[in-house]
Simulated scan of single mutants.
Amino acid sequence: MLAQDTLKHFRLFCDPFVDDVRSAEDVFMTNEYRYVLASMRHAAQAQGIVAVVADSGAGKTTMRRMLMDELRRDGKTTVIMPSIIDKTRITAAGLCEAIIADISDENPKRSLEAKARQVERLLRDASRSGQKHVMVIEEAHDLTIPTLRYLKRFWELEDGFTKLLGIVLIGQTELGLKLQEHRNSQARELIRRCITVDLRPLDDDLESYLNYKLERVGSSLPKVIEPQAVEAIRQRLRRKDKGQVVSDLYPLAINNLVVRALNAAAELGDERVTTEIVKHV
């Protein structure tokens, strides 16, 4: 976090990089992020299947919150979220119980067959009254292949031509690997129907991102960070992996590096973050 002395030094009334997202207006949206959010929204409202894949700290949870906020305000789509922490332990019965708990006051039936019929009835009745449903699963990279196969069966629930359940999977890069058919042909039925979208790094939007965050707290990028230092931040968050340049310019990594640089600049008494500071924090 930014030290109190750092906030005073740069005349910031609050930390723009830690616990900074309190509403949709606080979220910096690139065209990439808008596309991802639109893909999630379409899966929820048109009852499709989408997987959002990105490294830790890329903003996946923020996108999920944006989606849920939109759906809550719209009121036409109910979100179902299995709450089990260990996603490797999710079963078909557990998914049924999550659906029943989130869309009704009924107690789950005992047998899996009875639970499945109960789920189909509840979703069908709600659909006929105009209500849509989407199941959102975070940490979906931990899902087992059998569970992915179960999800396809849930997605197949329908009332005539009307699908009864959309599915949004949110996970780290391992989820993208798991959804490659040549790796997991057993789950090909879901994989072939699932649209995978990636949250890419903010390489081309770094300056805009930093300025947006700082303007939200009454400052601006030129007042706090030198132009050359911004490029230094970009280079610090790139690395080589097997001969390829890999970018880690995701919001969390950017925030952490900039916070360290601001604290260091304040300690040194510098008016702005310099290239040398970025290189050494």
Rank of each mutant, 00 (worst) to 15 (best):
S185I: 08
G176P: 00
H182S: 13
L175Q: 06
Y209C: 08
R193M: 00
L177Y: 12
F154N: 08
L221W: 04
I145H: 05
R183W: 11
L175P: 12
K240E: 15
I170L: 03
V230A: 00
K223I: 00
L179E: 10
R239D: 06
Q172Y: 03
Y209R: 07
E174V: 06
R236V: 09
L202A: 08
L175F: 00
E174S: 12
V217D: 05
L165C: 09
L190E: 08
Q186Y: 12
R149Q: 15
L165N: 09
I195F: 12
N211T: 02
L157D: 10
I170Y: 05
A232Y: 04
R183A: 11
S208K: 14
F154Q: 05
T173I: 06
H182R: 13
G176M: 01
D204P: 09
G160M: 02
D205Q: 10
L210R: 03
S185Q: 07
R216G: 05
E174R: 14
D159P: 00
F154S: 06
E189I: 00
R238L: 11
L175H: 00
G171I: 00
L179A: 08
T147E: 10
E181T: 11
L179S: 08
S208Y: 10
E181V: 14
L177M: 12
E207L: 09
L175S: 11
P227F: 07
P146W: 03
S185G: 05
A229C: 03
L157C: 09
I191M: 03
E189C: 00
R238D: 07
S208H: 13
Y209M: 08
I167S: 01
F161R: 15
D203T: 14
Q228S: 14
L177A: 15
R236P: 09
R200I: 11
A187C: 11
K240P: 02
E156F: 02
I167Y: 03
L214K: 01
R234K: 12
W155P: 08
Q172I: 05
S219V: 07
D198M: 11
I233P: 02
G160D: 09
K152Q: 13
I191S: 05
P227D: 10
G218T: 00
C194A: 12
K240I: 15
E226C: 12
R236K: 13
K223D: 06
I225P: 08
V168D: 01
T173H: 11
G243P: 01
